[in-house]
Write a protein that binds this DNA or RNA. Structure first.
Lengths: 329, 329
DNA sequence: TTGAAAGCGGTACCAC
DNA sequence: GTGGTACCGCTTTCAA
């Protein structure tokens, strides 16, 4: 260790300076600091991890990068982690890979990370089992298992679906349809439940409900099918913004105008929602807060807190230009 | 080390089994394997890294997650890395953070990763300097520095711009405009150069060229500005798909039909390009190959090869429904 | 084919 | 305040 000879103090004192231990004589601290600078010295992280038993690394697994909500959550997580002196390592495991077999991710090696944040997992039960078995502290954001026993951060999708639908009802619409996503997502089920409840409260029957995959194309197909079946809504609650965009495309292709003829509300407030025309009315998830809470809970877990405190956050209606008052024609 | 007593052989032999050394007696190997299984044993990676001097980790830095081209490249990188027994760790550093100060990323600690892939960096020169100083092997995908001395993987954006424009010309268009992105991207400059060359070869003058930010909104604004200035093209080459989408929105808002009145070609073949209506004609980057080549080059560098071999790949025209023959009106 | 022993580069406990 | 020393858990000589 060259830094020992360079600084003229012992290895131990160097270590103390590196770790901000206060019991180092100022003159010695300066010597070490000087040596560190001159040598461009950085402590070896493997050695550190080995000796300390922690890595200072937090893992975050997700299925896709291509989603501005995920993106914002990750940014928030990253920010808050840094604040606490942790680094973030990301791992993407595509759905197909996951189905294929077990977690190949390096994150899932107990000793690589101090904890893991799981973002909207597809195979939640399996992941929870694995993580518990390996005894890795973890928090799930947007979980899909109705009765998970993990620490979670969720947004109240029931409220989101309810508010979205209320918005349409308040605009005077009564012919209201819903394009939802795959039912194995808890969020999808909850949004739909909110939709149904809001209608029920107003004594309105759903005009149509389509269960599809997520994605622009699915929204297009669902709306096209409605039109061709002669069941044309005056308002649509789409389970996410991509579905909404697809539906908008479909209606426009058939000559309907948005929002003059048909109102559409999305969900998620994706980046493009405020950029397309007409700008999309949608439900925003509190992404910043989601990331922050996930970090807070995880660090608590790592600190040894019991795993009992989950968090439920509230979504927010964002009114833009894809919804308008119902007009008799 | 419990596994030693459990297996009944020495620590050394356990290590040999773990590392597939062939000089282990089969019966002993079985004993160890059995002990590993029963103990659910996994070697400590920090200890391994410390002893070996390598981590088996490759870092990948990028600016945003919200881009399906980046997404696909990352997937490809991940796949090929796994094939070679490496793990991938991702690090996002948003542009603003980067401007703020130096790389805070854990990846940039020499001993955390064996090498780094840099994806379309904003502050390329700085990163290159840093990485060279720290002596970390690295490869840049989509570099922006005209005369970098780093190993790079690029797609020929000149050819892409040229082919896109050729396509419009071959459809009979002569009033052709270009919305480009920020000029500090080499790719943007190259695409524009291809655009100009293709027109020049046909003796056509560009109708208009708009330099904007990337993004749907910028495309919308550029197209709107053209219309309001009375300079309406019959065909547009957009520097990326988001710009194309924005331009489509703008033209439609003013009553133009795509592609009947105006043809639009994008760039990148984002996920949404094939899902919106009309489906977007665009230029595809060979994402899978980009990831593969980056991995190949990086592993060569890590293996001690000289840093001299960069790679230039070819883009591909994908004709869909947003472009059509020019029709006199 | 196997194992003893010496690191890898730090941290933590101890006595001074 | 400081430094000696015993680890952290694995890989790598080197002899046997």
């Amino acid at each position: 260790m060259d830094i020992v000879t360079k600084s003229g103090v012992s290895l131990v004192t160097v270590s103390r300076v590196l770790n901000n231990v206060t019991t180092v004589r100022e003159s010695n601290r300066q010597k070490v600091l000087k040596a560190i600078k001159e040598l461009d010295y950085e402590p070896n992280s493997a050695a550190r991890s080995l000796a300390r038993g922690t890595t200072g690394l937090i893992g975050l697994t997700l299925v896709t990068l291509n989603d501005s909500v995920f993106h914002d959550i990750v940014q928030a997580v990253n920010e808050h982690l840094e604040e606490k002196g942790y680094f973030l390592a990301l791992s993407i495991s595509s759905p197909t890979q996951e189905e294929a077999e077990k977690q190949n991710s390096f994150l899932f090696q107990e000793d690589r990370v101090d904890g893991i944040i799981v973002l909207s997992p597809l195979n939640e039960k399996q992941i929870v089992m694995e993580l518990k078995r390996k005894n890795i502290p973890f928090v799930i954001i947007d979980n899909h298992d109705d009765n998970t026993r993990a620490v979670t951060v969720n947004v109240d999708n029931y409220v989101g679906g309810f508010e979205a639908t209320r918005h349409l009802i308040e605009l005077g619409h009564t012919r209201i349809a819903h394009v939802s996503g795959p039912e194995h997502f808890l969020s999808v089920r909850e949004r739909k439940r909110g939709f149904e409840k809001a209608l029920e409260q107003s004594g309105i029957a759903p005009l149509a409900v389509a269960h599809t995959e997520f994605g622009i194309r699915s929204g297009f197909q669902a709306a096209t099918a409605w039109i061709e079946a002669g069941v044309v809504p005056t308002a649509v609650f789409a389970g996410d913004d991509a579905l909404a965009l697809g539906a908008m495309d479909a209606f426009r292709a058939k000559g309907y105008r948005i929002p003059d003829d048909i109102s559409i509300i999305g969900y998620d407030n994706q980046l493009f929602a405020s950029e397309i025309h007409p700008q999309l009315t949608t439900i925003r998830q509190p992404v910043e807060q989601m990331g922050k809470e996930a970090v807070r809970l995880l660090l608590k877990l790592i600190g040894g807190a019991p795993r009992n405190s989950s968090v439920l956050l509230q979504p927010q209606l964002i009114i833009r230009h894809s919804t308008a008052n119902y007009k008799q024609r």
